[in-house]
Design a protein around this nucleic acid. Structure first.
Length: 651
DNA sequence: ATGTCAAGT
């Protein structure tokens, strides 16, 4: 059924003119997969053929590694098979963890629907701030992996679970890795626990080796489910492109002109590229020939509201075609343990995720994948993306591991170990903060802080608010620092107006006080979204801050920390802030930059900080975080940009 | 005189 693909003949306008085909095909033009198949998990479920094999393996092996494409049905079906096979008998629970909240909730809803039960009864989900499950009735529980990891602090053997399925393990999020490490340990003490590790890529042997190591032959097995259902043709550029965003727009345009049906899904590295790609397409749209399919470009990234994100699932109207311009994780956070500096780096896609993405075009019909680089580049790509645990700050996770009784971190059986320097840096920080003693043992405050779902410094600040009698305000500041993008400042003329609104909250003392003002005003004016809109605030961010604040308040009450107001005494508040940020001090210099107290690094204030246009009265500031940015139009390349607040280093 | 962003508790 395939095709001579006329648009690829030399000399024609379009992707064909500069594309190399990976495979020759014959017949008519291959139709594109409709968008629901690109983005959702509907369609046939090849997993059903493997039902008996899977159940046999879970029964016999401690860890079953399941390899199958996203959408093959493992996430929704396997827990149901386990339920039918009796794994939830005797009050036991089958857990399925996801790296993202949206996945945990949407999958739970679908499975409840399939079984025909009310969500929250036999089938439920648990994510932060939302527990839609029943302690007595829930048999299949979907949850974020971070949530289950946290549960180990309360129940170290996770005794209510009979089977734990760690889904999307190939993504290697920090919590997935930590959870796998803990699960292996739990199995030594509780061999009846069964582990299912689900991976969409072939690097699953890594998990097999991990769970086989140090055990008997019955410890781990791989079950491979059927691969992609329809052929996906892969096309490459003949020459590398100097501007891949523009190229992406051109290819989208050419596909629209030359293909009769189906939607288009594009992966770019970040929000900025998405905006630019949409602009390019907007310029081209008026030149669309009459009677051709109407192209509807749609952005997709985490900065959108949930409603906006859900819109992409709506089928395109007749005569139209969606082009979804989406982010991926090509832009990853890297962390330098020597300088404790995090920055965002654009890295090449890995072979594993490029393969997985191509598979998305073949869910319900044959499809085509256009790679915007030459085939020769593909062979040089790294096989997989490095696990997050190898490139992130580990202070909080290590405190949590300590709390679980895992003291010797060098000997901990990591799936992938964090760099030794990262571990040392974390231990050093915990020691300085008084969370561990010189022997590496948890202190009393360390034990309590390990339970708090905020960064160590922020938690420390909450505990010290008792001494400064300002728990009320510190609670708010702690919650506000945990949400991002509080102020909404658009580009252009609207931005200038928004800037004026923001100034109404601005406090001379710095960003933390400004955030406090914004929060207090938000609650004073009835927590309305309309009020936020007219005051340049994000209603979503503010509402989240309210949730986080009430959660943190419960922790403070549990630890008998008083929630008193400082009654407008900003000095007291500033002193308390320093107790959390005492390691993040910087000194003003005459050229307008700062020098960090630790490391004497050159720092610049981020333009979103209220201190961007101010000189600190005392010459000293504390700051929330420092991060290396891409924009280096500063005096020299070593300049750091940071979010900063004027603290109380007056001394 | 100027602006990083995938995800989680």
């Amino acid at each position: 059924m395939s095709a001579s693909l006329t648009f690829w003949k030399p000399g024609t306008v379009g992707p064909g003119s500069n594309l190399d085909r990976a495979s020759e095909v014959e017949g008519n033009i291959i139709p594109y997969a409709p968008s629901h198949s690109l983005l959702s998990t509907q369609g046939q479920l090849p997993i059903s053929k493997h039902r008996e094999k899977l159940l046999y393996c879970v029964e016999k092996y401690g860890a079953t590694i399941v390899v199958g494409q996203t959408g093959c049905g493992k996430t929704t079906q396997l827990p149901q098979y386990l339920l039918q096979a009796g794994w939830a008998d005797g009050g036991h629970v089958i857990a399925c963890t996801q790296p993202r909240r949206i996945a945990a909730t949407s999958v739970a809803a679908r499975v409840a629907d399939e079984i025909g039960v009310k969500l929250g009864d036999e089938v439920g989900y648990t994510i932060r701030f939302e527990d839609v499950s029943s302690k007595e009735r829930t048999r299949i529980l979907y949850m974020t992996d971070g949530m289950l990891f946290r549960e180990t602090l309360v129940d170290p053997l996770l005794s209510r679970y009979s089977v734990i399925m760690v889904d999307e393990a190939h993504e290697r999020s920090v919590y997935t890795d930590l959870l796998l490490g803990i699960l292996k340990k739990i199995r030594q003490k509780r061999p009846s626990l069964r582990i299912v590790v689900s991976s969409a890529t072939l690097d699953a042997t890594k998990f097999l080796d991990y769970f086989s190591q140090g055990g008997s032959e019955d410890d781990a097995v791989i079950v491979s489910l059927e691969g992609r259902m329809f052929p996906v043709e892969v096309a490459y550029l003949k020459e590398p492109t100097p501007d891949y965003v523009r190229k992406a727009a051109q290819v989208v345009w050419d596909i629209n002109l030359q293909q009769n049906s189906g939607d288009i899904l594009v992966f770019l590295t970040g929000r900025e590229d998405i905006e630019r790609c949409l602009e390019e397409l907007a310029h081209m749209l008026p030149t669309l020939p009459p009677r051709s399919i109407r192209l509807i470009p749609m952005p997709l990234h985490a900065g959108l509201t949930t409603e906006e994100q859900l819109q992409i699932f709506q089928p395109a109207a007749p005569g139209t075609r969606k082009a979804i311009i989406s982010t991926n994780i090509a832009e990853i956070r890297v962390y330098n343990p020597t300088t404790a500096l995090a920055s965002l780096a654009t890295v090449p896609v890995s072979v594993a995720s490029a393969t997985q993405r191509a598979g998305r075009a073949g869910r319900t019909s044959p499809g085509i994948c256009y790679r915007l680089y030459p085939m020769s580049v593909f062979t040089t790509l790294p096989p997989t993306t490095s696990p997050e645990i190898t490139r992130t700050d580990m202070t909080t996770p290590i405190l949590q591991l300590k709390s679980l009784g895992i003291d010797d971190l060098m000997k901990f059986d990591w799936v992938s170990a964090p760099p030794a320097e990262t571990v040392l840096r974390a231990l050093e920080g915990l020691l300085a903060a008084g969370m561990i003693d010189e022997y590496g043992r948890l202190t009393m405050i360390g034990e309590q802080v390990s339970e708090c779902p905020v960064e160590v410094g922020i938690a420390r600040m909450l505990f010290y608010s008792k001494d400064h009698k300002c728990g009320e305000e510190i609670l708010t500041i702690a919650a506000m620092t945990a949400v991002q993008d509080v102020f909404v400042i658009p580009d252009g003329a609207a931005g200038a107006l928004a800037e004026l609104e923001r100034r109404k909250f601005t406090a001379e003392e710095g960003d933390h006080f400004t955030l406090l003002n914004a929060y207090n005003a938000f609650t004073r004016y009835g927590r309305s979204s309309g009020w936020c809109k007219s005051h340049a605030l994000s209603f979503r961010a503010m509402s989240r801050a309210v949730s986080i604040r009430s959660q943190l308040k419960k922790y403070m009450q549990r630890f008998n920390l008083p929630i008193e107001s400082c009654e407008g005494d900003s000095k007291r508040l500033a002193k308390c802030l320093v107790s959390g940020y005492w390691r993040n001090g910087a000194r003003w210099t005459a050229d307008g930059t700062y020098r960090s107290v630790r490391g004497n690094m050159v720092l610049s204030v981020h333009p979103t900080s209220v201190l961007f246009t101010r000189k600190p009265r005392t010459g000293w500031v504390i700051f929330h975080e420092m991060e290396e940015t891409k924009k280096t139009q500063y005096v020299d390349q070593n300049m750091r940009v940071l979010t900063i607040t004027n603290g109380a280093f007056s001394g």
